[in-house]
Nucleic acid binder design. Structure first.
Length: 845
RNA sequence: GCCCGGGUGGCGGAAUGGCAGACGCGAAGGACUCAAAAUCCUUUGUUCGCAAGAACGUGUGGGUUCGACUCCCACCCCGGGCACCA
């Protein structure tokens, strides 16, 4: 593992310091010296900060609010992960600097404790989720206390507390009232292991995002939110957001907007009149459409009125295709299959030709209209299909150059397209659509947010179904007769403590067997009715928590709160990129909806104008996981090295947005650095020395550290601090003022040791974390002498030190006089001399 | 396949047109010590050379430039996102 650190925590009475003393010191002070023992000072300051409310801003009166928000953890498993600590530390450093710059920094923390993740863990260790939540809460907060973040503890929240989920349920009710929540029987993702449905976003490569089990399709009646209604705004707003690019790209891909046309094809040969509407992004290729393909789910296939001569064969194919899950259906390189619908044909509206209609599972029922026009000459999939079944191909686009090879996917000029021949394909899209009375239309990859879960550990969905009203066709929403939201005065619908909380697998929640829970009176007619027994997705809990932090004491104003105006939109949001299309999409959707309802008023409806995704901490080149046994427990390192050392080590590994590989050996370097800081602090226990300031080095460091923190380049900021300490140690004597500036620069990274030196060694009475951030003097950034690089034909042949006041002429003269340069020139005459101000002279021969 | 990152010593990384390898780890040698640990000092890209110094060197191949890790073109490899989405 790592070397034993017997010299720190394990020796409480060790008290000489001699062994630690280095060249910097004053011998006579030795008996007063103490060793750097993080265990002694860290918990002391954590308690003191709490008592002094160092990190509690005035939520109602702060003059310069800075909401420093970070994604809250979901407690489960063995406790805080080193990855959590990495994320929190990186966000905290930014916030600490802002606080020193005079901002009222609000850095809240809480627990996203509802959900499958926490419930599964409780089941695994055989504890009831309610009881496990209490334990996790205690353990997590204890660990979170130890990492030394400037958390505003007073405002902490837990999503599983009734005073919290009261408002999660309220949010559901609002969705319902505004027509954004609906219940529908549909083919949904079902995780056989977690025994619940999942949203599209929770399925990764056909597997459950939580447990990795292959997801299957099930026909179930489920609750969804109409996030698709917001697809355009979710996409368009991305342009205005200052977010990590990779997250924006992921959201763009996920929303997947494409512009195309819907075109109607009349059907011939059927006894009843029928049309098939297709969606295409290439209406310009309509003249090349030689057949149509319906998805197995297409409504015409189930329509018995529709005269398909080989109906049995077609239905059999469709049924088989539907039984396959997405993964099987789209397995890469899979051969195309399909069946022709005999006895019916479609009429290409551009050519008036009769073309065959097929059913094939390469067309998805859930996208577009569930039907396509196939243009085998200009689409790879259609090409493959046409080749296999011997269907005709017709090229209708030519590019300028080599276009002999089909399929040709690109754009170009039209051919064999009647009066459109020669037209540019881009222009032809609109023209041909118009010509056949089609309609330009957007299509989205995004699906509605499936919100219900057949599990116990979540907020019960606050809906009631009344059989009486349903029969009478009454209800709160059109086409949803019988359904009523729980009246707001009756919220929250409490999650009962049931002994049998395990998922049933029958498509309903364990709450469905709790009569006391589900029996309710109809809010409309008073008849005996039945409560919804599913709970909502965990991601609904976390879709509004940033609002809740602003008022944990007064639940009645949790969402519509005057503080919201002061603190939101958040100044900075930090979290993992793995939530690109989960949390980060949902949270935006909910904010947009709240904006439309007049509850929020953020510009563009966006709560987080600035978001930064941090990197991933891996271990020895591999992702940490319990099965690999390479999970780093931060507690152990904090116990052995201190939180300051671990914080700095994690930040020193690599740029914060990149992540890093955790290697035990590296921790020692930071530990040495902090010991040297400590020792230098001890050296100042005596009155100040009146030594000269480190000047340019100091001021360059102030600038560098400030810039690096702003850019989240903590690794290079730490490097700059090391260089400054090295420089100070080389001096005969160090000015106390310099060292104090150094301490302030170090404070965001190592909050405990800097506070200890500041207050205990230097006798200050207020926290270093409330000190003003150092300002550099631009005049002091440059050294008195500069190093001029001398090149001949671009190769370095020497360097010389010159006063920084030097002129171009002086530089060139000095360069030509240099021995190394003369040797390299070998008597040749310079053709050209390039001078880069105060940096370099390059002599070209 | 498309879209984002990225490829630099033994290792993590630094430098975004101007001394490649900052800072740290590791390693080697030395000081202190009975000894070890800790600490401090020195060295540490590769090759040739006693040295002064020289040549080579940032995934590969070209190009632009006085000068390229950095910019341009083509390609290879690694990580991530999307993917039969018409």
């Amino acid at each position: 593992m790592f070397p034993p650190k017997s010299d720190i925590a394990a020796m409480p009475d060790f008290k000489d310091g001699i062994a630690n003393w280095n060249s910097f010191g004053i011998g006579s002070m030795m008996e007063n010296m103490s060793k750097y023992r993080p265990a002694d000072i860290e918990s002391k300051w954590q308690e003191k900060w709490l008592k002094e409310s160092v990190y509690e801003p005035d939520l109602d009166g702060a003059a310069r609010p800075f909401y420093n928000l970070m994604m809250f953890p979901y407690p489960s498993a063995e406790g805080l992960h080193v990855g959590n600590m990495y994320a929190f530390t990186g966000a905290d450093i930014y916030g600490r600097k802002k606080r020193m710059e005079g901002f009222d920094v609000f850095e809240p923390i809480g627990l996203d404790g509802f959900g499958i993740h926490s419930e599964n863990y409780a089941m695994k260790i055989g504890v009831h989720p309610v009881d496990q939540a209490k334990r996790s809460e205690e353990h997590f907060y204890e660990q979170l206390q130890m990492i030394g973040n400037g958390f505003a503890w007073n405002e902490r929240l837990e999503t599983y507390k009734p005073e919290y989920y009261h408002w999660t349920q309220w949010l559901f009710v609002q969705m319902w009232k505004h027509g954004l929540a609906y219940r529908k029987r549909q083919s949904v993702n079902w995780c056989p292991k977690d025994q619940t449905v999942l949203s599209d976003e929770q399925v990764e490569n056909g597997k459950c995002e939580r447990c990795g089990t292959v997801v299957v399709k099930k026909e179930l009646e489920q609750w969804s939110f109409r996030i698709t209604k917001y697809a355009d705004r979710l996409l368009d707003n991305l342009e205005k957001l200052d977010w990590s690019e990779r997250v924006k790209v992921a959201q763009r891909n996920w929303i997947g907007r494409s512009e195309g046309a819907e075109i109607r094809f009349e059907v011939a040969g059927s006894n009843a009149p029928a049309t098939i509407t297709v969606f295409t992004t290439r209406p310009d290729t309509l003249f090349g459409a030689t057949y149509l393909v319906l998805a197995p789910e297409h409504e015409l296939i189930a329509d018995r009125q529709f005269a398909i001569a080989n109906r049995d064969e077609v239905e059999k194919y469709a049924a088989e295709a539907k039984s396959k899950n997405n993964e099987e259906r789209s397995e890469e390189g899979r051969e195309k299959t399909g069946v022709e619908l005999k006895g019916v044909t479609a009429i290409n509206p551009a050519t008036n030709e009769e073309i065959p209609i097929w059913v094939a599972d390469y067309v998805l029922g859930s996208y577009g209209t569930g039907a396509i026009m196939a243009v085998p000459a200009h689409d790879e999939r259609d090409f493959e299909f046409a080749k296999k079944f011997g269907l005709p191909m017709r090229q209708v686009i030519v590019s300028g150059g080599d276009d002999a090879v089909l399929p040709f996917i690109g754009t170009g000029a039209l051919m064999d397209s009647g009066k459109f021949d020669g037209m540019d394909s881009e222009a032809a899209k609109k023209e041909i659509t118009k010509f056949v009375h089609g309609e330009m239309k957007m299509q989205y990859r995004l699906r509605d947010w499936l919100i219900s879960r057949q599990r116990y550990w979540g907020p019960p969905i606050p809906m009631i179904f009344c059989e009486q009203c349903a029969k009478a066709g009454k209800g709160e929403q059109p086409e949803m007769s019988g359904w009523y939201a729980v009246p707001e005065k009756d919220l929250p619908v409490l999650l009962p403590y049931v002994e049998n909380f395990r998922p049933t697998g029958s498509g309903v929640s364990p709450l469905a067997s709790d009569k006391d829970f589900y029996e309710a009176a109809c809010p409309a007619c008073g008849a005996s009715a039945r409560r919804e027994t599913d709970v909502s997705d965990t991601f609904l809990d976390s879709a509004w928590y940033y609002l809740r932090y602003l008022d944990p004491k007064n639940a009645s104003a949790a969402v519509n709160d005057p503080r919201v105006k002061r603190w939101l939109p958040a100044a900075l949001y930090t979290g993992g990129a793995e939530h690109s299309v989960l949390h980060l999409l949902y949270v935006r959707f909910v904010a947009l909806a709240l904006t439309d309802w007049g509850i929020l008023a953020f510009p563009d409806g966006e709560p987080f104008p600035k978001f930064r995704a941090h990197g991933l901490i891996i271990k020895d080149g591999a992702k940490m996981s319990k099965s690999k046994g390479n999970v780093i427990n931060p507690d152990e390192y904090i116990r052995n090295f201190g939180a300051d050392t671990l914080r700095m080590y994690l930040m020193f590994l690599a740029p914060f947005e990149q992540g890093g590989d955790f290697r035990d050996a590296g921790v020692l370097g930071i530990e040495r650095f902090l010991k040297r800081v400590w020792n230098m602090g001890e050296g100042f226990a005596a009155p100040g020395t009146g030594a000269r300031s480190a000047g340019a080095l100091l001021h360059r460091t102030i600038k560098k550290v400030a810039d690096d923190i702003d850019n989240l380049h903590y690794n290079t900021a730490i490097s700059a601090l090391m260089i400054l300490l090295n420089g100070l140690e080389e001096q005969q004597a160090v000015a106390r003022e310099d060292f104090e500036i150094f301490l302030k620069l170090l404070a965001p990274f190592a909050p405990h040791i800097t506070e200890e030196i500041w207050r205990e060694m230097f006798g200050r009475t207020t926290s270093i974390h409330r000190e003003p951030w150092p300002i550099y003097d631009p005049k002091l950034l440059t050294e008195e002498t500069i190093t001029l690089v001398l090149q001949v034909n671009g190769k370095v042949r020497g360097t010389i030190s010159l006063p920084s006041t030097l002129t171009e002429e002086e530089a060139k003269t000095a360069a030509l006089a240099d021995e190394g340069v003369k040797r390299a020139l070998g008597g040749a005459t310079p053709k050209k001399i390039i001078y880069v101000e105060k940096k370099l002279v390059n002599i070209v021969v």
